[in-house]
Design a protein around this nucleic acid. Structure first.
Lengths: 301, 301
DNA sequence: GACTGTGAATCTCTTCACAGCA
DNA sequence: TGCTGTGAAGAGATTCACAGTC
């Protein structure tokens, strides 16, 4: 078969919304929902742009991909846009989501109350630890992993969220896919391999922090090199080098004129979580070798 | 100094690593760490690419931005790359991170044991609910929000993670910035406005799901409209095209030939999660109202 | 006058393909 | 021969700027 990946087949029946636009639609949707709640009936691309933190040109171009739903000289009808965007995102029929791995993070996600309102419902929770079966989290009962296939079938799940330790992720992914899931949100620190037709999005908090760190490094060349001006410190800061008094000028960072709506870094990311209690140092801590060591969970299936 | 932001102004002192590359460096870092652990000493761009789920051309171009650390005909020295990438990401000096809003998500993040290994340490936890002060999470004590400024000063925090409800996010952000934080990871569903020089990255799980939903919608036009053809077949996949049931062997799902390494949706990711005990419920659960409400933190001041 | 929709210019990222070196 | 490093081509995404419509 044609090995083409995402862009589906080999034809392009629809105008095809650019990926970059797709990534912003949820943002507009959120803003529009807020506006609708406030009773606002129309918005201009400028207003919407400001609220979403993007440029108005982007908003207009993005929306034009959905069709011409605006009125020149006036703006866009909030309800119409909400409708069109929701439709395009496929949120009209709420999709069932299965979450695998109810650890720290999985637990937090399962309890996140914002999903239903955003069009999703976690209909099934699965965990490898049989002892947890029966436990209720966010109103949904945790089921043993053996029931994974049956649950997907029963609830017609098409989206799976993997919150398992890295070691179990690929295996879980395989089962999800084999059972019919075609979209996966992966929180495990591994690159999942999936057959064509299956979409995977990855979220990694540590990566987000590292990207921020990169920019930090540019802003403050190297604090550890400078002499630390730290007198006696209260807390138990286990910090080693660090410290380089930054200009405490800071002042009140509330000056609209001075700020720019934070341009979305790139996309998402979200969270990780690790075992239960005091997480001991990573196993092979021995090595004095620097920086990394993926503290991927433990546990297999 | 010139307040130029990211794309710098009119000068370009450094070769400047492209943003897209910066976003992938953490990914390479993770793979390399794994290789180093396995005792591997050199990698070719092909191998690294496969493990990271990107193309080899990308790997080469990305790495070339860090300098020429490879050897033609041989490959790259794993340790050298680890060193160079860590340095470029500013991970050599571990940065203190403050997390604000210890609700569901914040709790999960605070307990995530993978950060230290990735170069970060949560040195301070702050929550608006004074009743929680003193509580230990992941080995760090929760402090009342009034101490935010002092803690940032004491621990020389430069990166802040916001896990508060949407309503409190901007306020918290302002305080973080005023106190000297220059990088923020925002989990609240709002667009934060910050002054120039401050970087913000946003993470929104619902958005990730919505993006997946968009692709789902393309794959399966509209289930609710069609009559469900659900017989009762076990391994039946309701998929239209694609996905030839992979061996449900579940074994070590590793069949490169049949799969494609999941192309990163956009950013990267990581994040495992493991068990943990029951978490306290977020305080303000009340509102049934619409769309947002980051169920994370517990109330904003 | 206000604001959308969109071609064209620009910029960024990716992919190609190959010269050059071990 | 094997693999890096990179110029050049190609693909996307963003920005510009303005014609078109209410």
């Amino acid at each position: 078969m044609s090995p083409s990946r995402r862009p589906s087949r080999e034809k392009r029946p629809r105008p095809a919304v650019p990926e970059a636009t797709v990534a912003r639609l949820p943002l507009y949707l959120r803003v529009l929902t807020g506006l609708a709640d406030d009773g606002v009936e129309t918005v201009s691309s400028d207003t919407l742009a400001a609220a979403a933190g993007v440029t108005s040109a982007k908003v207009r171009k993005d929306l034009s991909h959905l069709g011409s739903y605006g009125t020149r000289g006036v703006g866009y009808d909030v309800d119409v846009l909400l409708d069109r965007i929701s439709a395009r995102l496929g949120l009209t029929e709420d999709r069932g989501v299965m979450l695998v791995g109810v650890g720290n993070l999985g637990h937090a996600l399962a309890r996140y109350g914002g999903f239903p309102a955003r069009g999703f419902r976690i209909v099934a929770l699965v965990d490898a630890d049989p002892a947890r079966a029966g436990e209720l989290v966010g109103g949904v009962e945790i089921r043993p992993v053996v029931e994974l296939e049956r649950l997907i079938e029963d609830y017609q799940v098409t989206i799976g969220v993997i919150c398992t330790p890295a070691a179990a992720a690929q295996q879980v992914c395989d089962r999800l896919v084999a059972a019919g899931v075609t979209s996966i949100l992966n929180f495990a620190p591994v690159v999942l391999s999936v057959p064509d037709g299956v979409d995977v999005r990855k979220v990694d908090l540590a990566v987000e922090l590292q990207i921020l760190s990169f920019h930090e490094a540019r802003k403050r060349p190297d604090r550890s090199a400078e002499p630390r001006i730290r007198p006696a410190a209260p807390g138990t800061l286990p910090l080693e080098g660090a410290v380089g008094a930054l200009s405490p000028d800071g002042a009140t960072g509330s000056r609209p004129e001075l700020r720019t709506l934070a341009t979305e870094g790139r996309t998402l990311g979200i969270a990780p979580a690790e075992r239960g209690d005091a997480e001991p140092a990573p196993t092979t801590a021995a090595g004095t070798e620097a920086v990394m060591r993926l503290a991927t969970g433990s546990e297999g299936s």
